[in-house]
């Protein structure tokens, strides 16, 4: 994570870092909107559920945008202190 460039969020001005991503497989319906936005981070598995490819696959803002695009809010993002960033 050390070489990941922090990106300032618009709301707080603080750099956003995502330390953990959790995908709720029960909520995921396989719409694949996360894959469209952040394909280096999310892909679909053999059961048509999204899975995490790599935590550092995309920058933090792109990952956040991918999570926000999920129509069932199945992607949970946490910062380094373990606080839930989204949803």
């Amino acid at each position: 994570m050390s070489d990941e460039k922090p990106v300032p969020t618009e709301a707080s001005g603080k750099p956003l870092k995502i330390a953990k991503i959790v995908i709720d497989r029960d909520l995921c319906i396989g719409a694949a909107s996360c894959v469209v936005i952040a394909p280096e981070t999310f892909q679909m598995d053999d059961e048509n559920k999204a899975y995490l490819v790599a935590l550092e696959g995309n920058d933090a803002e792109t990952i956040k945008m991918a999570a926000e695009s999920c129509p069932t809010k199945a992607i949970f993002l946490y910062d380094e202190e373990g606080n839930q960033v989204y949803p």
Binding site: A31, A32, S33, V36, I37, S69, P71
Partner: peptide
């Protein structure tokens, strides 16, 4: 007409 297409086209 579907969610992912609408989102991706908006983007």
């Amino acid at each position: 007409g579907n969610w992912t297409n609408a989102m991706a086209q908006g983007r």
